[in-house]
């Protein structure tokens, strides 16, 4: 299964980036093999607003089935949901640790955004 994980670095040992819209990177991982591709998200770091929407589109366009992240706001959730991408929030640790939990079925999908959107 192909999933996206918001990550603070470019390897599986990197810590999860708790932010979705302004995550440093997305790692697009094949959960069976742990093969992955790095998607930088720096174009979103300086956006005054709409980072969640843009990040949502990035992830949707990668063709993943799920996104694993720390926090996901209402607009990003809306984009992901309308594209049928499942969302896991509230995780922390390294990307590898989180993926192991995910594979064991220890993580639950969210049914809504877990944080408010915010405006600069």
């Amino acid at each position: 299964m192909k999933v996206a994980v918001s990550s603070s670095g470019e390897s599986l040992d990197s810590e999860i980036d708790l932010r979705f819209g302004r995550a440093s990177y997305f790692l697009i991982v094949e959960t069976d093999t742990l093969d992955f591709e790095v998607k930088p998200n720096e174009q979103n770091m300086d956006l005054p607003q709409g980072a969640g929407i843009q990040a949502g589109k990035t992830v949707v366009n990668c063709g993943v089935e799920a996104i694993i992240t720390g926090n996901c706001g209402p607009k990003a959730y809306n984009v992901l949901e309308s594209a049928g991408v499942k969302v896991v929030t509230g995780v922390n640790g390294t990307v590898k640790e989180v993926l192991e939990k995910f594979k064991k079925g220890e993580l639950q999908y969210s049914v809504s955004a877990n944080v408010e959107g915010h405006w600069v």
Partner: peptide
């Protein structure tokens, strides 16, 4: 420039408050 109108998964989405 404000991500107020988007095409996501062959659907058009408007975020009115953006």
């Amino acid at each position: 420039r404000f991500s107020a109108i988007n095409i996501v998964a062959k659907k058009i989405m408007v975020f009115a408050d953006m």
